[in-house]
């Protein structure tokens, strides 16, 4: 057993867990935040993407104890109360989801992508950057549209951009 202490969506949390506990299970089962999904469980699909110290990672491929001491942001940590994060709002506006299973990972990947491309995004870049996120419903078209729209909206409104932790 190891102690895992980290900042989860801005809140300090601490728990004793087995060393083999994956970060995604720590988030879902230990902390009760079930927005982060387990899709393939083999590091392909990206449904489990969260941010660790500001970078998108696959939380099914990392031990919780590896993240001890880090800051972790999950899909639950993006919105400001009832106000959706610009990326969440764009996914709703552009119908960037059907069943919604991949959506938390898509949105966490998208916010990371937008942060890494302050110069703006084009369709080719978005599609290449979505390499690690699989959606079996949409055919990606509306996801790409939503990310492009969010990227533009966030470039215009500095507030949204600053929030994309």
């Amino acid at each position: 057993m190891s102690n895992v202490s980290l900042v989860l969506n801005g809140r300090s949390v601490s728990a004793e867990v087995e060393d083999r506990t994956l970060l995604v299970h720590f988030i879902r089962e230990n902390q009760g935040l079930t927005g982060t999904h387990v899709g393939c469980d083999t590091s392909q699909c990206g449904a489990c993407v969260v941010h660790v110290d500001g970078k998108a990672v696959k939380s099914c491929s990392m031990l919780a104890v590896q993240a001890s001491g880090s800051e972790v942001v999950t899909i639950e940590g993006l919105s400001d109360g009832a106000d959706l994060h610009p990326v969440q709002a764009a996914f709703r506006e552009h119908h960037g989801l059907q069943c919604g299973f991949c959506t938390p990972g898509m949105i966490m990947a998208a916010t990371d992508m937008i942060r890494r491309h302050p110069e703006g995004l084009d369709e080719k870049t978005v599609r290449a950057e979505l390499e690690g996120n699989i959606c079996r419903c949409t055919g990606y078209h509306n996801i790409v549209k939503a990310i492009l729209a969010a990227s533009e909206a966030m470039a215009k409104g500095g507030k949204g951009a600053a929030k994309a932790a």
Binding site: A56, V57, K58, M62, A109, D112, R116, G132, N133
Partner: peptide, 9 residues
């Protein structure tokens, strides 16, 4: 290599 999330680790 891999995808953006894999490259972060």
């Amino acid at each position: 290599i891999g995808d953006p999330h894999v490259r972060h680790r």
